[in-house]
């Protein structure tokens, strides 16, 4: 990859992040990670308490891009056909006619995904992994740019269904936004004085640019020992005591790609170990299933990944 392309990607990503930052204050790190995840072709799961800006972030990202955007509000009575679409008999033409669901879009905001039943949640499995949908035996391809950004409340909340492990694995990153600092929160209040900043946000990136960015990711160089480092990190979760289910090879792929995207953010056409360490927890943690003993002893998936990070020799 030449310097010009690298520069172009760097600028594109920075433009996007500064746009979004004008709406969401004090979350530059998370915005960077969301964009990296997007650029790497993965899907993002935002998890936090209500009111921390998950939906706003997702909407801001969608609005910055000149691409199709739909939002599905997940509710307990939502059915898979509500998402994918359904064939309806047309009495006039006497044929079944397919009514495509909201999934046929570029950017899909699955709001409060864990409010729907696991059955409905699983409707997304095929589309997220393979970019295609099967309805009534017909396979329909989704758009080249298909990006799911889902939000969910912490699973301890009332009226939620935890996502199945397979579904969790489809998300390349899970991010927790957390509460912003007091200064940033004041800035949020001040911005609301005139108009909601989200309303004035307009698109700055075309669909083609997005696709080009995604293609560039694979050209970011990563050395063999860093690949090995990625595999060691992910592989370690499979041997770690206290974990019932470790991370899959899909996690390794996601980790590498996200690190590559982060490299572009830094205007580098190569991955450094810092890039990998930055997103390791966000990429791996949500895929792990802890055993009850470690859960009760106060361990979290995050703390386990942190332990692994501090026990591996990093190539420098």
């Amino acid at each position: 990859m030449d310097q010009i392309n690298c520069q172009w990607a760097h600028e594109l990503l920075n433009r996007l992040s500064s746009r979004i930052e004008s709406v969401i204050k004090g979350q530059s790190q998370n915005i960077k990670k969301v964009l990296a995840g997007f650029a790497a072709g993965g899907h993002i799961l935002l998890e936090d308490n209500p009111g921390t800006g998950k939906t706003t972030l997702a909407k801001a990202l969608a609005k910055c891009m000149n691409a199709g955007f739909t939002r599905i509000q997940f509710t307990p009575d939502l059915l898979p056909s509500d998402i994918l679409g359904v064939s309806i008999f047309d009495p006039g033409q006497k044929i079944f006619k397919l009514h495509k669901g909201p999934i046929f879009t570029n950017i899909l905001l699955a709001d409060e995904i864990n409010r729907a039943s696991p059955r409905t949640q699983s409707a997304l499995l095929e589309s997220m992994a393979e970019g295609q949908v099967s309805i009534d035996g017909t396979v329909l391809r989704l758009d080249d740019l298909f990006f799911v950004i889902a939000t969910q409340n912490p699973i301890e909340s009332r009226g939620t269904y935890p996502l199945p492990e397979a579904q969790m694995d489809r998300f390349s990153l899970q991010l927790k936004l957390g509460y912003v600092s007091k200064e940033d929160e004041v800035a949020v209040l001040s911005d609301l004085k005139h108009k909601n900043p989200l309303d004035v946000l307009d698109a700055c990136v075309s669909l083609e640019d997005c696709l080009r960015l995604r293609q560039m990711i694979s050209h970011v160089h990563i050395t063999k020992d860093l690949k090995r480092y990625v595999v060691d990190l992910v592989g370690a979760t499979r041997n770690q005591p206290g974990i019932l289910l470790g991370a899959s090879p899909r996690a390794s792929i996601a980790l590498m790609k996200t690190a590559q995207a982060l490299a572009l953010f830094d205007n580098q056409d190569f991955v450094t170990p810092d890039h990998i360490q930055q997103v390791a927890i966000d990429v791996i943690a949500h895929r792990l299933v802890l055993d009850s003993q470690s859960t009760f002893s106060g361990m979290t998936a995050q703390s386990i990944i942190q332990d692994i990070l501090t026990s591996l020799l990093v190539p420098v």
């Binding site: 020992d225 090995r228 480092y229 060691d232 592989g235 370690a236 041997n239 770690q240 005591p241 206290g242 332990d307 692994i308 026990s311 591996l312 020799l313 990093v314 190539p315």
Partner: peptide, 11 residues
């Protein structure tokens, strides 16, 4: 594994 400091584990 090459980059690993020993077997991983809390103990």
């Amino acid at each position: 594994t090459k980059g690993q400091i020993g077997t991983l584990g809390f103990e």
